[in-house]
Nucleic acid binder design. Structure first.
Length: 420
RNA sequence: GUGGUUGUAGCUCAAUUGGUAGAGUGUCGGACUGUGGAUCCGAAUGUUGUGGGUUCAAGCCCCACCAGCCACCCCA
């Protein structure tokens, strides 16, 4: 037997839940004026090296990179923002006016050790608000994310925000942090020794060396005036919208392109993989990718993690069953049943027997499929020109015409004939 | 990538010191030859994750690999 690749999933029965979830998220985004984008699943490796950052874990060890037959280096996208920004530049979207409000939904790939809530192919729903440097754009983005969580019935999330500064103030902070950590350098874990040179900010969220991070200088104390004003204003906006949040200086994010605002949504009882979504501002990314300077902000949710959260909350939607199952008594009525089902399928979700089950078996199957009504066709019905319609919940049944079936099942009429 | 743990029917799990693999549930059928969800009866389904090894004999012991889970790392 050939089995699926480690860290991937077949979504079969759950596809109904996925569809429900994606529709909900999509509708919120559409109602806020966002437009769906679909960019390729693979991109030039260079795109991620330059945007996500050469020193990040994603680029260093998690990318699915290969050479195609033309000798080009290709990478399966590990995240959604860089491809969308590439498309923004390539399609000259800024000429259509700013802001551009885009969303995307699809698979991402990272080569990591799988565990619950962490897969090698996983799915993200992401939103990008492109073109504004104002804190009101941050507020709108975060509001949108919260509206989405509420729309699917998740309300126990924790919003954590932080500011990582910009090119003016971050270098100072990095120096300050290095100076602080220097005396402990030999005591730090091996990972942190490497991080010290590569990306000192990462030291802050190391669990092993948390004791040093506690007393480390906080970036919020080292922001330049502009960054501080931006952050203060965002907090004020969130307060005014009565959005609860926690300022968490350890939120650094693992992608290099973030500037100023970063945020994460955590959800309780999900184990170690409890971040259901996250995002931030990226004011220099488009410029770094060869476009003009277009400040932007965005975020992404992990679909699998949202579903895990819904499971822990027991908030998964009830999957609707069939409206009508058309039952044939004998072989003779099989084709008639199919014709009737076909006519009814214009209005309802319908099914007929293709397994040659007897009457009892067909009822039983209809029941198992959560069917609302059954229509029975036998010799008797064909002779009378009427069908037997049965309400599977109440057990009531009537002899009715086809037009009557449509009325009753669609809920716009009661049966006007009785006895069966 | 590191450490730990688990893998038996579609699903949940049994199987004594190593001695020919079982139950519940689900599926299908019958009791009920035109009526489901209740009850009773019956049937089918396994290379015990894969491949080696030890042994008269391996689901059980040993090795390797694969996969899941937990934690690290990191993030969605």
């Amino acid at each position: 037997m050939i089995s699926r690749i480690k860290g991937t999933n077949d979504i079969i029965e759950d596809s109904k839940i996925w569809k429900w979830l994606e529709e909900k998220l999509k509708n919120v985004a559409l109602n806020f004026g966002f437009v769906e984008t679909r960019t390729p699943i693979f991109e030039a490796t260079e795109l991620f090296n330059r945007s996500v950052g050469n020193e990040t874990d994603i680029v260093q060890k998690e990318m699915y990179t290969f050479e195609d037959k033309g000798g080009r280096s290709i990478t399966l996208r590990p995240e959604g923002t860089a491809p969308v920004m590439r498309a923004f530049i390539e399609n000259n979207l800024s000429s259509k006016g700013l802001p551009q409000k885009l969303f995307y939904c699809g698979p991402m790939f990272r080569y990591e050790r799988p565990q619950a809530g962490r897969l090698r192919q996983f799915h993200q729903f992401g939103v990008e608000l492109i073109g504004s440097a104002l804190p009101i754009a941050d507020a709108m983005t975060i509001l949108l994310a919260i509206e989405m969580l509420k729309a699917i019935g998740l309300d126990k999330f924790k919003l954590k925000i932080n500011s990582t500064g910009d090119e003016k103030c971050r270098p100072n902070y990095v120096e300050t942090l290095k100076a602080y950590y220097k005396p402990f350098l030999n005591d730090l874990c091996d990972d942190c020794k490497v991080r010290y040179d590569r990306n000192v900010l990462r030291l802050l969220d190391c669990k092993k060396d948390a004791k040093y991070a506690e007393n480390a200088p906080k970036i919020t104390g080292y922001l330049c005036d502009d960054c501080k004003a931006h952050f203060d204003k965002l907090k004020k906006y969130l307060d005014e919208m009565e959005i609860e949040y926690e300022v968490d200086p350890s939120i650094v994010r693992g992608l290099d392109y973030y500037t100023r605002t970063v945020f994460e949504f955590k959800y309780p009882n999900l184990g170690a993989q409890d971040a259901i979504g996250g995002g931030g501002r990226y004011d220099n990314l488009i410029e770094e990718l060869g476009g003009s300077k277009v400040p932007s902000i965005g975020f992404a949710f992990g679909i699998e993690r949202l579903i895990l959260a819904l499971e822990t909350e027991k908030r998964l939607p009830e999957i609707e069953g069939l409206d009508i199952y058309v039952i044939s008594i004998d072989e003779d009525q099989k084709i008639e049943a199919l014709k009737i089902a076909s006519a009814l399928s214009k209005y309802f979700k319908v099914d007929v027997d293709v397994m040659g089950r007897n009457v009892k078996g067909q009822f039983s199957h209809a029941s198992k499929e959560n069917t609302r009504y059954t229509v029975v066709i036998g010799e008797e019905e064909i002779k009378m020109g009427l069908f037997t319609l049965k309400n599977m919940k109440t057990g009531e049944q009537w002899k009715v015409k086809l037009s009557e079936i449509i009325k009753i099942v669609s809920g716009s009429g009661e049966a006007d004939t009785s006895d069966a």
